[in-house]
């Protein structure tokens, strides 16, 4: 049977305890709010995209459960120093991973470290915890003024 330890992998526990890229960026040109009304998780992401269209820096602030904090932390690592044009594909890969059938192994090559979050599929009520940050970053990328939700 699926073990809790498969959800709360050490990587997730670590990122929750010591989130990377946490706090407000000194310089940023995109930002957005995310909110999960069901559990009250709140997130704010900052994005600094340079003239070449590279995500030069990215950070987040907010509060939430271990899954949401770790997911945001891992996300910032995954997109930092990558071209903005590649974001949509990453977003879709992540969405696919957390909503796909349990039998389907995550594409570790494409997803890298993010694959540790595949375990949330076993916990349907927690999928939104993992995906809120991605929806929020998407809002920032598209400069949406609306607070991101996972719906």
């Amino acid at each position: 049977m699926f073990d809790l330890r498969d959800l709360y992998l050490q990587v997730i526990v670590d990122h929750n305890k010591a989130p990377r890229n946490f706090g407000k960026l000194a310089h940023y040109n995109h930002e957005a709010d995310g909110y999960n009304p069901l559990c009250g998780d709140k997130l704010h992401v900052y994005l600094d995209v340079n003239d070449e269209g590279i995500i030069e820096d990215v950070s987040f602030e907010g509060e939430g459960c271990a899954i949401s904090v770790a997911s945001a932390s891992l996300m910032t690592e995954a997109v930092k120093n990558t071209p903005l044009s590649g974001f949509q594909e990453k977003f879709e890969q992540f969405q696919h991973m957390v909503t796909s059938d349990l039998a389907e192994a995550p594409d570790e090559e494409a997803l890298g470290k993010l694959a540790v979050l595949a375990g949330v599929r076993e916990f349907p009520s927690r999928i939104k915890c993992a995906s809120l940050c991605w929806h929020t970053l998407k809002s920032a990328v598209t400069d949406s003024q609306e607070v991101a939700k996972t719906e």
Binding site: L4, L38, A66, I67, C129
Partner: peptide, 20 residues
């Protein structure tokens, strides 16, 4: 966090509510 707690105790058969 209460939500992590809710998930963890659920796997032990204990149903509680986590939230506002």
């Amino acid at each position: 966090h209460p939500h992590d707690l809710g998930t963890i105790v659920d796997r032990e058969g204990v149903a509680i509510r986590a939230g506002h």
